[in-house]
Amino acid sequence: MGYGFRMATDIIAAVVVGTTIGWYLDQWLGTKPILLLIFIAIGLAAGVRNVIRSYRVMAADLGTNTGVDTDDLSTPNKNDYDDDDKDRV
């Protein structure tokens, strides 16, 4: 319920944050379009990172039918997110 919208806001918000940071860094350092373009790309990457995280939460919520191993998510106390880190490389 509402997962699609959650992920859409995740991506959009990340791009907005990246664009804002790039815009102000450009203003500050006087490197007009370069940092803005770089930070839009980084913002998009951060948005995809957010969506991957949201997807893991969603998979944990919905159980097994998403085909993702959710053992490490259902017990946050265990502290082992190694799986997460391997995917990141």
Binding site: D10, A14, V16, R53
Partner: peptide, 14 residues
């Protein structure tokens, strides 16, 4: 690290 920081800053907005 930059991506992670931006991803973190996204939280209040999303």
């Amino acid at each position: 690290v930059v991506i992670e920081v931006i991803s973190y800053l996204t939280r209040p907005i999303s």
